[in-house]
Measured scan of single mutants.
Amino acid sequence: GKMTGIVKWFNADKGFGFITPDDGSKDVFVHFSAIQNDGYKSLDEGQKVSFTIESGAKGPAAGNVTSL
């Protein structure tokens, strides 16, 4: 299901970062391709987001990332 969290950091040049889930679980990798907006796909440190957990090739990653 949907989770919420805070963006820990995001490197716009490399197109990835990490989200710290509100439930205290392990930080989740986020790739820019998972960001659900029409414009420039980037996130800001400290931004609140909702997301799902998808299993990627390198382990769990955030999917369906939407800013709240």
Rank of each mutant, 00 (worst) to 15 (best):
K2D: 06
K2Q: 07
M3C: 10
T4I: 10
T4Y: 08
T4V: 06
G5N: 01
G5Y: 00
V7K: 01
V7A: 02
K8V: 02
K8T: 05
K8Y: 01
W9I: 05
F10Q: 02
F10H: 02
N11Q: 06
N11S: 13
A12N: 14
D13S: 15
D13E: 14
K14A: 09
G15H: 04
G15R: 07
G15A: 03
F16L: 05
F16M: 08
G17I: 02
F18C: 06
F18T: 04
F18R: 05
I19C: 01
I19Y: 00
I19G: 01
I19F: 00
I19S: 00
I19T: 01
T20N: 06
D23N: 13
G24L: 06
G24W: 04
S25R: 09
S25Y: 06
K26N: 11
D27K: 03
H31L: 02
H31K: 05
H31M: 02
F32Y: 14
F32H: 10
F32V: 14
A34V: 08
A34D: 08
I35G: 03
Q36W: 04
N37G: 15
D38A: 12
D38S: 13
D38T: 13
G39C: 09
G39W: 06
K41G: 07
K41S: 09
K41V: 06
K41T: 08
S42Y: 11
S42E: 10
S42N: 13
D44T: 14
E45T: 15
Q47H: 08
Q47L: 07
K48H: 15
V49P: 00
S50T: 13
S50V: 05
F51G: 01
F51Q: 01
F51N: 02
T52N: 10
I53L: 14
S55I: 13
S55E: 12
S55D: 10
A57T: 10
A57F: 12
K58S: 08
K58D: 09
G59N: 07
G59Y: 06
P60Y: 07
P60N: 08
P60R: 14
P60S: 07
A61R: 15
A61Q: 15
G63I: 13
N64L: 05
N64K: 11
T66P: 02
T66V: 14
T66W: 09
S67F: 14
S67Y: 08
L68M: 12
L68G: 07
